[in-house]
């Protein structure tokens, strides 16, 4: 077969797997969110649909599809319809550059475990895309012609812009250590247990807090603060349009966790694991193990995201802003200075 045909087939397959895998993962995150919230509150949680309630999320999605799609009379219909698409589209587009492992050889063809491997601006692409994601929420708020939606949309834009700054700056320390914006190389630089978390603990904490703000999760879920804003930016959405916002939130959560694993926790690196299992470079099995290591490392962070939601109250808006600008930003800058100084001394 022609080489370009094989390559495009493999690419298409990878995209299909990643998009569907993500949506299913998001659906199951909703299930686990409900389960964990129930356990924390000494309840049982969904347990009716299927064994242990495992099909609950599919039932939920099915219900969302069947629901009436209401568009407010005075809404800007075009933008109202496109906002959820932007939200979920951007959330998924980030996965073009996120690697879940290195590569394996399939019939002499080198297959990478990411859609666009070795993109030399990978990290910038993720940061840029997550800033575009705010358009989805802001447009949703603006086009709904509802004061609560508008407030939610404005809050989300202000919040995301504030925390993007400290998020980006917190990653500069990582970049200084690995010397690359390519996620694959960042992970390879951490090989053998030299994980960035040991060199960048402050950077990690700043990134973690900013990630909570970026994904609009409690304690920073002001854009959809129920007691104040009804539903925030998605007040006027129903049916699967609302479902798309919902899925986008969870996909963003997965993205944040993937970034934490890749940037701070060594990605697929586990010291001595691959040598002990005797997996050669380029074998399918090694790629599979790498993939499961990445996913396995993501699970504790996903759990942290969910548990935090059911443990902490919401910040007040001025507290959120003062935390972002007066604490996170100076700390991130200090982190860069400290990292730079230490690197100067030791080199």
């Amino acid at each position: 077969m022609e080489q370009w045909l094989v390559q495009s087939l493999v690419l298409g397959l990878k995209m299909f797997l990643i998009v569907n895998g993500l949506l299913i993962a998001a659906a199951y995150l909703v299930y686990f969110e409900r389960k964990i919230s129930a356990w924390i509150q000494n309840r049982v949680g969904p347990n009716r649909v299927g064994p242990l309630g495992l099909f609950q999320s599919f039932a939920d999605v099915f219900k969302l599809y069947l629901k009436e799609d209401i568009i407010p009379t005075l809404a800007n219909k075009g933008f109202h319809a496109i906002a959820p698409v932007i939200s979920i589209g951007i959330a998924i587009a980030v996965y073009a550059v996120i690697p879940f492992g290195e590569y394996f050889y399939l019939g002499g063809e080198k297959v990478y475990l990411s859609i666009a491997p070795h993109i030399n601006v990978g990290l910038l692409f993720i940061l840029g895309m997550s800033s575009v994601g705010v358009y989805g929420l802001t447009l949703a708020g603006w086009s709904s012609n509802n004061k609560y939606s508008l407030l939610g949309g404005l809050r989300s834009s202000a919040q995301m812009i504030s925390y993007e700054l400290s998020m980006g700056l917190s990653l500069i320390g990582v970049l200084m250590i690995s010397g690359s914006l390519d996620l694959m190389q960042i992970v390879q630089a951490q090989n053998g247990g030299h994980w960035n978390i040991f060199f960048q603990p402050l950077g990690f904490i700043i990134f973690l807090v900013s990630a909570f703000a970026e994904t609009n999760r409690t304690p920073f879920d002001l854009p959809e603060a129920e007691p104040e804003l009804v539903g925030g930016y998605h007040t006027e959405y129903s049916g699967m349009k609302f479902g798309l916002f919902f899925l986008a939130e969870y996909v963003n959560m997965v993205t944040a966790c993937a970034m934490m694993v890749l940037l701070f926790f060594g990605g697929w690196d586990v010291p001595f694991l691959y040598e002990m299992l005797g997996l050669e470079e380029g074998s399918v099995l090694r790629a599979l193990v790498q993939f499961s290591v990445v996913v396995g490392k993501m699970i504790p962070f996903l759990f942290l995201f969910i548990q935090t939601r059911w443990s902490l109250p919401r910040f007040r808006y001025d507290q959120l802003m003062s935390l972002g600008w007066k604490v996170m930003l100076p700390l991130a800058l200090a982190n860069i200075a400290i990292t730079g100084t230490i690197m100067m001394i030791f080199n």
């Binding site: 964990i36 356990w39 924390i40 509150q41 000494n42 309840r43 049982v44 942290l304 548990q307 935090t308 059911w310 443990s311 902490l312």
Partner: peptide, 20 residues
């Protein structure tokens, strides 16, 4: 925050009060 998370984590393993 860590203390609070610990508290909720312990709570997860306590007996459930739900009646089926």
């Amino acid at each position: 925050i860590a203390r609070g998370l610990g508290m909720t984590f312990v709570e997860m393993f306590k007996p459930k009060v739900t009646r089926q």
